[in-house]
């Protein structure tokens, strides 16, 4: 096991399709809910403690070795928006492709074969972390970081927001990312049914609206 594998997995350049997703930021920018660094920070903080925690716990549970099929079912129940379920499965399939090239192993192969249309992305991420020899906590960190890193990068492109300010937002959120990763890792030791299910009503609602836009820059 090497801790540096976590840097590879969490790198924004890891070719798993994340760059085309804004994590709800494109819809929030259009609605005027993200206008500057302060509103980006509030958005990211809310996303981190809701879907971020839920996804981090699913990933940590997969890295812990829980049955991925059961986790995928749990992810479905925690994702009422069909647009977000579709995005999660699509990203899961894209991540699977990259993960099998980076850390090939029988568990990734089995998951790919059980879910040819893609498993939920956090489940794939946790299995990839496991295949890379990483711990559940590491999987939690990777998800917590991508939960806020995705919207921040998207807002730099959408608003022309100063990239230094956007990066400072991420740095300020670091202690909370730690807390979310640790909560996720702790929850992963418990039963799948009791994993966190924190949700964000506006992310669910605006994801459906965004999926219906005729013209958009990001896939979600």
């Amino acid at each position: 096991m090497t801790r540096s594998a976590l840097l590879v997995l969490a790198d924004g350049r890891f070719p798993a399709g994340g760059h085309a997703h804004s994590g709800g930021a494109e819809a929030a920018v259009a609605a005027g809910r993200i206008r500057d660094a302060a509103t980006l920070e509030a958005f990211c903080r809310g996303r981190l403690h809701t879907t971020g925690l839920t996804s981090a716990a699913l990933a940590a549970a997969a890295a812990h070795g829980h049955d991925p099929a059961k986790l995928d079912e749990a992810a479905d129940a925690r994702t009422p928006s069909p647009a977000l379920r579709a995005a999660a499965r699509r990203l899961g399939r894209q991540l699977m492709r990259a993960a099998r090239a980076a850390w090939p192993g029988p568990e990734l192969d089995a998951l790919a074969q059980a879910f040819p249309k893609g498993a939920h992305q956090p489940v794939v991420l946790g299995t990839a972390a496991r295949s890379a020899g990483l711990a559940p906590l590491d999987a939690g960190y990777a998800v917590a970081y991508e939960t806020v890193g995705g919207p921040a990068t998207a807002v730099v492109r959408l608003l022309g927001l100063d990239p230094f300010q956007a990066t400072a937002v991420l740095a300020r959120l670091a202690p909370e990312m730690d807390a979310v990763a640790e909560r996720a890792a702790a929850a992963a030791r418990g039963p799948v049914d009791e994993l966190p299910a924190a949700s964000a009503p506006l992310l669910d609602i605006t994801a459906e609206a965004h999926a219906g836009w005729p013209v958009r820059l990001f896939a979600s």
Binding site: G24, A28, A31, R33, I34, T39, E41, A42, F43, C44, R45, G46, R47, L48, H49, T50, E176, A200, P201, L202, L203
Partner: peptide, 13 residues
């Protein structure tokens, strides 16, 4: 008493 961001643009706005 909730974790931060609950009234931000992602959750309740």
């Amino acid at each position: 008493g909730a974790p931060g961001g609950w009234d931000g643009g992602a959750v309740l706005a």
